[in-house]
Structures are given as C-alpha cells and as structure tokens.
Amino acid sequence: MDSEDETSLFAQEVADIKRLEKSEVYLGKKGSPVDFLPRQKAATIAQEADRNPLSQDYVEKVEPSDVLEYKRSGVQDGVFKRLRQGKYGIEARLDLHRHTVAQAREQVYQFADDCLRNDIRVAIIVHGKGDRTPDPDSRAMIKSYINKWLKDLDQVMAFHSAQRYHGGLGSVYVLFKKTEKARLEDWEKHQKR
C-alpha cells in the first residue's frame, strides 16, 4: 500500500467525525466538592491518640563503635555491673534490623510498654551498629535514637551495650523498673526468711 492509498483510506475513516461544540475540556472529577474538615479532624485525633512520647526530632549522633550506657539514680552499682556483664537472664528481645526510624520508634515504645505490663525486668534490643550504611550522615541512626529514647522512657532504669555473645555494640541490655506487683512479691519473699 502506498502513501496515497493510506491517505484516502484515512480520509474515509474520519469523514463522519463531527467537531466538538465546546472548545474547552474539563478533566476534573465530577461530583460535589470535597469537605476537608473531617479529614483534618481525623488527623488531629490520630495525633492525639499517639501517646508515644519518643521524639523523632534532633538526636545526638553516636558512632557505630560507641558503647551505650545509662543508669538512673537509685540503681545500685552491683545491679548495673551485672547488667553490663550480661549476667541477668534475658526475658524478652526486640530486633530492629531493617527498620526505619519511625518503625523503630513505634516498636521500642510498644516493647517497653509490653515489658512493663508483663513484669519483664531484663530485655535486649538489637539495633545494629549502623556501620554498613553508605551515607555517612545516616550511620548508626537507629543506635543514636535508641540511646535517646531509652533515657526518655520512665520504665527504663538502666541500659548498657551487650556482651559480644549477645550482639556486642549492635545490641543493648535494658533493665526495666519493677511493677508494684513484682515489688510486693519481692517484699513478701524476703519477709518469709
């Protein structure tokens, strides 16, 4: 088929097409305008429902090779030493590998809350060292936030980087405060002596 035949065939095909009366075409959605007020209220309620006090704002950076350690006043030196040496039985574990900061924030808050509710005294959080990140600005980011967040949680009494056999500088032992129930049980146990 030559180009003259193609042109005449095309002309035959479009011969019955009529011109549009409107010169403008509206591509927007039809229907009533969207009321954004309910959406704004829902977003506000969601923010208020987020009881998580852990902040994702500025964090003081720690290096992948830094040891994390913290002890509230009132924690006995012997207790902290045993925690640091990994001599307490680990009752719960949280692994934050491959988590974003936002995901880690949620997980840490929920984990701490669960530990307190279940009378867990010693746990381990595996955060990774953060030394394999290609971007130097985001190295040890989760580790840095763990260092900040654990200090911000009232239920955390102390924490320390783990022993090598528990993950070393990529993990942290966490000592949670005793619940009132556990405190009463300890008191009763010691009274029977």
Results as ranks from 00 to 15, higher is better:
46 A>Q: 05
47 Q>T: 12
47 Q>N: 15
49 A>K: 14
49 A>I: 09
50 D>Y: 06
51 R>S: 13
51 R>L: 15
52 N>Q: 04
52 N>V: 02
54 L>R: 05
57 D>E: 15
58 Y>G: 12
60 E>S: 09
60 E>I: 13
61 K>H: 14
61 K>I: 06
63 E>G: 07
64 P>H: 10
64 P>Y: 11
69 E>A: 14
70 Y>V: 08
71 K>R: 15
71 K>I: 10
72 R>K: 15
74 G>S: 10
75 V>H: 08
77 D>V: 09
79 V>G: 04
79 V>L: 10
80 F>V: 08
80 F>Q: 07
80 F>L: 07
81 K>P: 03
82 R>V: 08
82 R>A: 13
82 R>Q: 14
82 R>P: 01
84 R>Q: 13
87 K>I: 08
90 I>K: 11
91 E>F: 05
92 A>H: 11
93 R>L: 07
94 L>G: 09
95 D>M: 03
95 D>L: 02
96 L>V: 12
98 R>S: 14
101 V>G: 02
105 R>T: 05
107 Q>C: 10
108 V>L: 00
109 Y>E: 01
110 Q>E: 12
112 A>S: 13
112 A>D: 01
113 D>N: 07
113 D>A: 14
114 D>T: 12
114 D>Y: 05
115 C>Q: 02
117 R>S: 09
118 N>W: 00
119 D>F: 00
119 D>A: 14
120 I>A: 06
120 I>R: 15
121 R>E: 12
121 R>T: 01
122 V>M: 09
122 V>P: 05
124 I>V: 15
125 I>P: 01
126 V>R: 00
127 H>Y: 03
130 G>H: 02
130 G>F: 01
132 R>G: 06
134 P>T: 13
134 P>N: 08
134 P>K: 13
136 P>A: 14
136 P>N: 09
137 D>A: 15
139 R>S: 06
140 A>I: 04
142 I>W: 00
143 K>T: 06
144 S>F: 07
144 S>M: 13
144 S>D: 11
147 N>V: 08
148 K>H: 08
149 W>G: 05
150 L>D: 07
150 L>Q: 10
155 Q>I: 10
155 Q>H: 08
156 V>H: 08
157 M>T: 06
158 A>E: 03
158 A>F: 02
158 A>L: 08
162 A>N: 06
163 Q>F: 04
167 G>Q: 01
168 G>Y: 02
168 G>H: 03
169 L>P: 00
169 L>T: 06
171 S>Y: 00
172 V>A: 15
172 V>Q: 02
174 V>F: 00
176 F>Y: 07
176 F>D: 04
176 F>T: 02
178 K>P: 00
179 T>H: 01
181 K>Y: 13
182 A>S: 14
182 A>E: 13
184 L>N: 12
